[in-house]
Amino acid sequence: MSALRSYALLVRWTGLRQKTFLPYAVIIQGLFSLGIVIGYPLLFPQIDARTILFIATAAPSITLITMGLVAVPQQVAAARTEGTLDYMRSLPIPRVVYLLADLTVQLLIVLPGVVFGVVVATWRFNLPIEVSPWVVPAVVLVVLTATSAGYAMASLLPPLIANLMSQVLVVLVFMFSPLQFPADRLPDWLAAIHRVLPIQAMGEVMRGTLAPAEFPVSAGSFVLLGAWCAIAFGISWRVLARRR
């Protein structure tokens, strides 16, 4: 059977399994984006237009990253515990096809929330968002990286630890990552770490493609992200194919 056919059937299988979850995911992500773009100006009434744009363009990255690093590990941990993962692994499907199908469905789940967030921000603040076509590869890359990282984490760690890890990462992403504020506000050592970690690069490629006029993005961010994506995907693939 061709890999393409397996892929299409698996996307259908996973999509149907997730379809009950989809409305909640859209609502939660929508509220989340809404909270960020509307909530911050309440915290800081003297906020200027450029800061608003900075925060509004961070919202999609935060949505995508938390989805990949929190929701995905929880799903994978559940699939491991209930035996679904082993069942899927017993079917005659190349591991990489299984992984790609899963990532595709995750992408489809997060997309509506991201679009909604951007639309709301544009409408609420009359933002000059002129989306670049590069936003498509940017979203795909961010989702693939975050989801693969979540996948790898959940496959390598015991379910309980994976769940704990994902909570810790939320705090890290929200409070100590240069997504909603510029990196130069961080202590030097943390800024240095973030130059290597993928989180800052995720924020930059999203912001740089949603508002390219205000925030130019360097090719370096794409390259760094691509490297992280390859590593995380490779680990997930290996773990999935491993025989204990």
């Binding site: 399994r17 035996g83 082993d86 069942y87």
Partner: peptide, 11 residues
């Protein structure tokens, strides 16, 4: 047919 009951939620 695995020993664990397969959840087929959504299907």
């Amino acid at each position: 047919q695995p020993q664990a009951t397969l959840p087929i939620d959504g299907l």
